[in-house]
Write a protein that binds this DNA or RNA. Structure first.
Length: 305
DNA sequence: CATCGATGTTGAG
DNA sequence: TCAACCTCGATGG
């Protein structure tokens, strides 16, 4: 599911396949019918992510803002093979070219779909974006709406820095300022999109473990140097996540362990979803507690104050 | 078949 | 603090 890395991957993929092209838009499910009509046939000028928010800039200052929420996902299907790509309608009708599907969101996967192109929408597709050789289906988003540049600016203004957009000292300083100015627990603060963009429940737990931090410790009590380290670590994890599509957060693995963890979810994390299992560092049982309705995982020994 | 849970946010009280 | 919302795969009977 979507933490910041997923959304940046989608933005990158959309730049590759849609940017500069006229895109047909529809809402097979019907719930985004009017919005789809507003943009259908216009050129996608830009696709950008900020944290978990995706902005698709179409002509005439029409911007589609998408937030996947907890289970939203994009399904992207492309025809493969250049000859098919360039194919005329006759070529397409010559019989069921195979498509490659890429699911982006909860669980990413690629597979050959044994079906004609473009495939019929499956399930509740809120928004379908389509060119001659690419179809992207959006399901289950928390938000999908057409906004003006002013509305987009207002959303952006409420978001904390994103390491991929606010590189260098400016983003870092902003992060330090926002973390240090609140006494709420650091475990809550890292999840607050107004403090920093893109961190979700998985990265939150893993980052805290990687820095041996007690999730309940007041954010303002952390030394500035620790906060700077957190920012740099998030920047690295995010860059890795965008590259691989996987939240691999363990720095205790050799090359083969890493390869395995990329494949096997159970091996992927230090503490996330490992309640009751031995801490990978000290063997203490990993604990789970609710923090503001979300499940928080941590090692009570390694992460003691 | 029904129920549950998930990498999230919003808004009411 | 809590319910509502959005969708689907996993789990249980």
């Amino acid at each position: 599911m979507p933490e910041g890395h997923t959304v940046h991957r989608i933005a990158g993929l959309f730049r590759d396949v849609f940017q500069g092209q006229s895109v047909a838009a529809s809402s097979p499910q019907g719930r985004f019918h009017d919005g789809a009509q507003l943009i259908s046939g216009s050129v996608l000028e830009r696709a950008e992510a900020r944290g978990k928010q995706l902005f698709l800039h179409f002509e005439r200052d029409r911007i589609v803002r998408v937030h996947l929420g907890i289970y939203g996902a994009w399904d992207v299907m492309t025809l493969h093979g250049e000859s098919v790509r360039a194919g005329s309608p006759q070529t397409l009708s010559l019989g069921a070219p195979r498509a490659t599907r890429r699911r982006i969101g909860e669980r990413e996967e690629s597979f050959d779909a044994d079906e004609p192109f473009p495939p019929a929408p499956r399930g509740a597709v809120r928004l379908r974006l389509e060119t001659l050789d690419v179809v992207a289906d959006l399901r289950g988003p928390t938000a999908c709406e057409v906004q003006t540049p002013e509305e987009v600016a207002a959303v952006m203004a409420r978001l904390g820095p994103d390491p991929l957009l606010d590189k260098g000292i400016r983003g870092q300083r902003e992060f330090v300022r926002r973390v240090s100015s609140t006494s709420r627990p650091i475990g809550m603060v890292l999840m607050d999109q107004a403090v920093v963009s893109g961190i979700g429940n998985v990265y939150r737990a893993e980052i805290l473990f990687r820095h041996a931090l007690d999730p309940y410790r007041p954010a303002s009590s952390l030394p500035e140097e620790t906060v700077v380290t957190l920012w740099k670590d998030w920047a690295k994890l995010l860059a890795d996540g965008v590259k691989t599509g996987v939240m691999l957060t363990r720095h205790d693995l050799d090359a083969s362990g890493r390869t395995r963890a990329l494949r096997v979810a159970k091996d992927r994390y230090f503490v996330y979803k490992r309640e009751g299992l031995p801490c990978r560092v000290c063997g203490t049982h990993v604990q789970m507690a609710l923090m503001a309705t979300r499940k928080l995982y941590f090692c009570p020994h390694c992460q003691a104050s």
